Computed example of a mutant assay.
Amino acid sequence: MDTIDSGILAPVVDEDGAPFWEYAARGELRIQACADEDCGELRFPPRPCCPHCRSFDSEWRRMSGRGRIWSYVLPHPPLLPGYAAQAPYNAIVVELVDAPRIRLVGNLVSGPDAPLNSVHPARLRIGAPVRVTFSPLTPGITVPRWLLERP
């Protein structure tokens, strides 16, 4: 992770993960999958070789963008100065409905452009249904964030 001018962490885009960020910029949640016809396993984070069959063939499958909160944390105190003004904020782990073994880390927010502290901590629940939204973080980087299905 790199920090941007505001002190917020930004992802480091590498060759394996670049398609994930390109799809996110288009508002699509896609997960890398093995393209071997006998395997087809989804994998995240992206990597060059399938850990199941060792194939180097891959494709990017579109997900519904729906999931459930698998875990969460409320950082206290904020560890980086860029986050101090947004405390208390959350960091959540989302288990995808389409791929229960795939879990993504992000933030639960009240809207696509809402700040990280826009959802009161008391509203966080393990198992709560969420759906993805996409927020531009810097020019060229759009990150997935999460909205409650039933706010």
Score class of each variant (00 low, 15 high):
43 R>P: 01
43 R>C: 01
43 R>I: 03
44 F>S: 05
44 F>Q: 01
45 P>R: 01
46 P>R: 06
46 P>Q: 03
46 P>K: 08
46 P>L: 07
47 R>I: 01
47 R>K: 10
48 P>A: 10
49 C>A: 12
49 C>L: 12
49 C>K: 05
51 P>C: 03
51 P>Y: 09
52 H>E: 07
52 H>S: 13
52 H>Y: 04
53 C>Q: 04
53 C>K: 09
53 C>I: 06
54 R>Y: 07
56 F>N: 03
56 F>L: 14
57 D>Y: 05
57 D>N: 12
57 D>V: 00
57 D>G: 13
58 S>R: 02
59 E>I: 02
60 W>F: 11
60 W>Q: 10
61 R>L: 13
61 R>W: 03
62 R>P: 03
62 R>L: 14
63 M>T: 03
63 M>V: 09
63 M>F: 05
65 G>N: 03
66 R>V: 03
66 R>Q: 09
68 R>Y: 06
69 I>N: 12
69 I>Y: 06
70 W>L: 14
71 S>N: 11
72 Y>M: 05
72 Y>Q: 01
73 V>K: 00
73 V>I: 14
74 L>E: 14
74 L>M: 15
75 P>C: 12
76 H>K: 05
77 P>A: 10
82 G>R: 12
83 Y>R: 05
83 Y>G: 02
83 Y>V: 02
84 A>L: 08
84 A>Y: 00
85 A>F: 03
86 Q>T: 04
87 A>H: 05
89 Y>V: 09
89 Y>C: 11
90 N>Q: 03
91 A>Y: 00
91 A>L: 15
92 I>R: 04
92 I>F: 10
92 I>M: 06
92 I>V: 15
93 V>H: 01
94 V>A: 09
94 V>G: 07
94 V>F: 10
94 V>E: 09
94 V>M: 08
97 V>D: 15
99 A>R: 05
100 P>C: 13
100 P>R: 08
101 R>E: 15
101 R>H: 15
101 R>K: 12
102 I>E: 13
102 I>V: 15
102 I>P: 02
102 I>K: 13
104 L>F: 07
104 L>Q: 04
105 V>P: 00
108 L>R: 02
110 S>E: 13
110 S>T: 10
110 S>I: 08
111 G>E: 09
111 G>D: 14
111 G>M: 08
112 P>S: 15
113 D>W: 00
114 A>D: 01
114 A>Q: 01
114 A>M: 01
115 P>L: 08
118 S>K: 07
118 S>E: 01
119 V>A: 12
120 H>P: 01
120 H>L: 15
121 P>L: 05
121 P>Y: 10
121 P>H: 12
121 P>N: 15
122 A>C: 02
122 A>I: 13
122 A>F: 00
123 R>D: 11
124 L>Y: 04
125 R>K: 14
128 A>K: 11
130 V>T: 00
130 V>K: 05
130 V>L: 06
131 R>L: 05
131 R>H: 14
132 V>P: 04
133 T>A: 14
135 S>F: 07
135 S>G: 04
135 S>T: 14
136 P>E: 15
137 L>Q: 14
137 L>I: 11
138 T>I: 15
138 T>F: 06
138 T>C: 06
